[in-house]
Structure formats: C-alpha cells, structure tokens
Computed example of a mutant assay.
Amino acid sequence: MNARVGFIGGGRMAEALIESIIVSNKIKPCNVNVSDVNADRLAYLKDRYGVNTFMLNTEVVALSDIVVLAVKPQVMSAVLREIKNAVIPQQLIVSIAAGYPIENIEKILGSDKKIIRVMPNILVKVNEGTIAFAPNSRVSEDEVSLFKEFFEAAGEVIEVEERLMDAVTGLSGSGPAFIFLVIEALADGGVRAGLPRETALKLAAQTVKGSAKMVLKGEHPEVLKDSVMSPAGTTAEGVAKLEEKGVRSAFIEAVFAAFKRSVEISGLVKKW
C-alpha cells in the first residue's frame, strides 16, 4: 500500500494500530506520520517503530493521505478546529474518538470531507480486535476497501450503521473486560480445585481462545454447549450452577449497561 497514514495522537490505541500495519507490511514506517503533545511519547514511537514524528498536528495532515484522529473525545473539537484549514476533500479522515459523531466532525471540517467513524477495541494489540466502522456519504466504495485493507491487519472489520455505535461499544468495546473477568474467575475455580495458579490461568485463557475459534467457524454456541454436556455429567452440573447464579442474565445486563452509558456519553459529546 503506497498511502501515507497519519495519526493525530500517539496513545495506546494508536500504537496498537501502528504496530499492526507495520508488522503486517501494509505500510512502511517511512509512510507513517504521528503527532502528539508528549515529546517523550513521540521519541518512543520513533525509536521503536521508525515512524515520522511531529509536534504539530497540521504537519501530519499535510503529509498524509489517511488521517487517523486518535485523541480523546473531550479534546476532539479543539483538534478539529486546529487542523480544519489543512484538511482537503481528497483525504480520508478516520476518527476513533469514542462517542464523537460524524455530524460533529462535519460541522467543523465541512460536509465535503470524507469521514469514517471507527470503534476498535483493545484486542487490536494482538491483531485480534473488532473494528466497527461507519462511513459518511462522501466515502466511495474504493475508499472503504482501502480503509478495510488498512485496518484488517489489526482484526475483524465490520461495517455498521452509525446509530449502532453505542451498541458496538457496549458489546465489543467493553466486552474484553468482561471476558478477562471470566478468565480470571475460571482460573480461580481451578485454583480452588487444586491447580497451581499459573497452570489454571493458562488453561482458562486457552479454553476461552479455543471456544471462540469454534464459534467463529460458524457453529452456534448452543449446539457447541450441548455437544460438551453429557447426561448427569460434570458439565451439566456446572452449567446448572451458572444458571442458578444468573450468569447468563448478568452478562446480558452488563452489555446493556455499558451500551446505556455509551449513549449518555455520546449525548454529552454532541453538546461539546
């Protein structure tokens, strides 16, 4: 890919994306530009990945075909106002600021700009992320393909309607924390049963990883669950205990609670 990619903001999510596209050879380090307010952070990124670094956001915009806005939503408006005169209609603007709608970006940069709103999750750090995206009407099919090629190095890319971004946040944005909790709890159960902590943690993590792979092959979780449950067996006893404790309902409520909080935050962002 010959495109030049710029990152405004060099935080953890930006770094995860930078690492994934460089390791996958999608883009050469010399074609990656990064700006940040933290000079030490820029020095680290330059030293580790060989990317070009700048203190001025406008320099990154001027040198990039794709501009990734990787800043916190509370500073997004200020950053947009800073770069608005440098952005041209031919550039692709990609925002990963949580809760910040395309409408707000267009109000500052102009409705003639090509904008894609993205919700990645922390799993992009291991190239197993979910990256939900919603483009505005100015983005062409070829540009969507270019965007997908760029982000697929970091995980599964899924197009959704922008109105569903809060639901995405509740499920895949917050979801890894819920699964980390599951892994920890499974390991604790193993330790309670006599396993060494390290062994229990490896068994728990691998169990979750393998289970996810089976679902992603297209088999329904209910069918897979039933295939493990023998009549009056150990799994049936364990599942009955989970149902008794309301674990299924707890996960549903956790995702919905995260979704509702995302809606609240999005409402606040729209007023900024």
Rank of each mutant, 00 (worst) to 15 (best):
R4F: 10
D65M: 02
K225Y: 04
E222N: 11
V263Q: 15
G233M: 06
E198S: 11
A132Q: 08
I93V: 15
I66T: 08
A167R: 12
A98M: 09
G170P: 02
N25S: 11
G246T: 00
F54E: 11
K113E: 09
L80A: 04
R48F: 04
R117N: 14
N136R: 03
G9M: 06
V94M: 08
V255I: 15
V60C: 01
V32G: 13
F54A: 09
I265A: 15
I18C: 03
G189H: 00
I83Y: 03
G6P: 07
M1Y: 11
S249F: 11
R48M: 05
G238T: 00
K209R: 08
I183H: 09
I116G: 05
E152P: 05
S262N: 03
L201I: 14
T130R: 09
E162N: 01
I102S: 15
E222T: 13
R117Y: 10
P89T: 07
S211L: 04
V223C: 08
F150N: 05
E143R: 02
A132E: 10
E149R: 07
E103I: 12
M76V: 09
V51H: 06
A232S: 13
I66K: 04
I183S: 14
K113R: 15
F259L: 15
I105P: 03
A200C: 00
Q206K: 06
E237D: 12
A212M: 05
E15S: 12
N52H: 08
D40P: 04
G233T: 04
S137V: 06
D40A: 12
A14I: 04
P221H: 01
K148N: 07
D36T: 10
K26R: 12
A250F: 00
I122S: 15
V168W: 01
F178K: 07
L45S: 02
V239L: 00
G10C: 03
V223H: 11
L146K: 06
A204F: 02
V208F: 00
G238I: 01
G267H: 10
L203H: 03
K113W: 08
L195W: 00
A232E: 09
V32I: 14
L80M: 07
G110A: 12
K113I: 14
E103V: 13
I131W: 03
S174G: 04
I27W: 02
K26D: 11
K260S: 15
M165G: 05
I115C: 06
S266K: 15
I27M: 07
V34H: 07
E143M: 00
V255E: 14
P73W: 02
R248D: 07
M165F: 09
I102W: 11
T235H: 00
V5Y: 08
A205E: 08
G99E: 07
V71S: 03
K260M: 15
E159K: 14
E19H: 12
A254W: 02
E143P: 02
E19V: 11
E143S: 01
T58I: 13
I122E: 13
V87H: 04
D226R: 00
F7T: 02
V118A: 06
D40K: 11
A86D: 12
V51C: 08
V228L: 01
V118S: 08
R4C: 10
I122Y: 10
E19S: 13
K84P: 05
A187R: 01
E253Q: 15
G218Q: 03
G246E: 00
V34P: 09
D65P: 01
R163K: 15
V79W: 09
K148I: 12
K270D: 08
G155V: 10
F150R: 09
R248V: 03
E159V: 11
A70G: 04
